[in-house]
Simulated scan of single mutants.
Amino acid sequence: MKAFCSWSGGKDSCLACYRAMREGLEVCCLLNMLSEDGSRARSHGLRAEVLMAQSEAVGIPMIQRAASWESYEGEFKRAVLALKEEGIEAGVFGDIDLIEHREWIERVCRELGVKPVLPLWGSDREEVMEELISAGFEAVVVAVRKDALGPEWLGRGIDDRFVDELRGKGIDLCGEEGEYHTLVIDGPIFSRRLVIERAEIVDRGEVTFLDITGFKLETKG
């Protein structure tokens, strides 16, 4: 079955895509929603061109759609309807247990006539992080909520020590409440590695971001 993956560039959407592919789905497209001006990802604040480079590194084409929060659902539906015309029958999503997200996904997919696939749904947080690390994914922190983590966490890689420190702070290991967001730069579904060359720390309200301004793709092996 051909599917698209709802893509943020972070660990959950990437791991969901990985699981879906291992379960036999043919992920043909990554669907990424941008801010209204089309410059940044609506979810993680990453520059659109960084995510496009990540798509090249993975080797799966990406469709990006700009939207305000008010027009988000309509733009998302239009993008999926266009994909349906190309034979897409399912959508892969990286949600773990936020019920309001699942309800939205199931309603929208039902209205569009595509099958919702949530490979991470109901997974234990510890197991998700363990699988991410043991499978060989490399992810770095690109956003932190100020009331949860300080700017010193930006740029940190996801590893066992990272998980231990989150556990010690009593923070959701997967950051499901927006405590932190990540960018995956390498892993088993990547044909090339995304290398961050330049970045700066930027404050935007309640969240501090790592604004990646320089990057390149590197051949693996």
Rank of each mutant, 00 (worst) to 15 (best):
E131W: 01
G155V: 05
E179T: 03
L154C: 10
F137K: 02
G170R: 08
P151N: 01
I201P: 00
V141Q: 10
L132I: 00
G170W: 10
A139K: 05
A135M: 03
E138H: 14
G178E: 10
G170Q: 05
W121E: 05
V184F: 12
P151C: 01
V184N: 11
F162I: 07
E206V: 09
W121P: 07
G178C: 12
D124L: 10
E200F: 04
E179I: 03
D160A: 15
F162G: 08
G122F: 03
E126T: 03
R167C: 04
T182N: 12
L194S: 03
L166D: 10
S123L: 14
E165H: 06
V142W: 13
E138G: 05
E138A: 10
K146L: 07
G170F: 04
V142I: 14
E138C: 12
W153K: 08
I201R: 13
M129W: 02
E127N: 07
P151H: 00
I171P: 09
P188Q: 01
D159R: 11
E130L: 07
V141E: 09
P151T: 04
L154W: 05
K146C: 08
I189C: 06
V144I: 11
D160G: 14
E197F: 05
D172L: 06
I201G: 00
K146R: 15
G155D: 07
R198N: 13
A143L: 11
I185Q: 09
M129T: 00
V207G: 03
R125M: 06
R156G: 08
K146P: 02
D203V: 01
R198H: 11
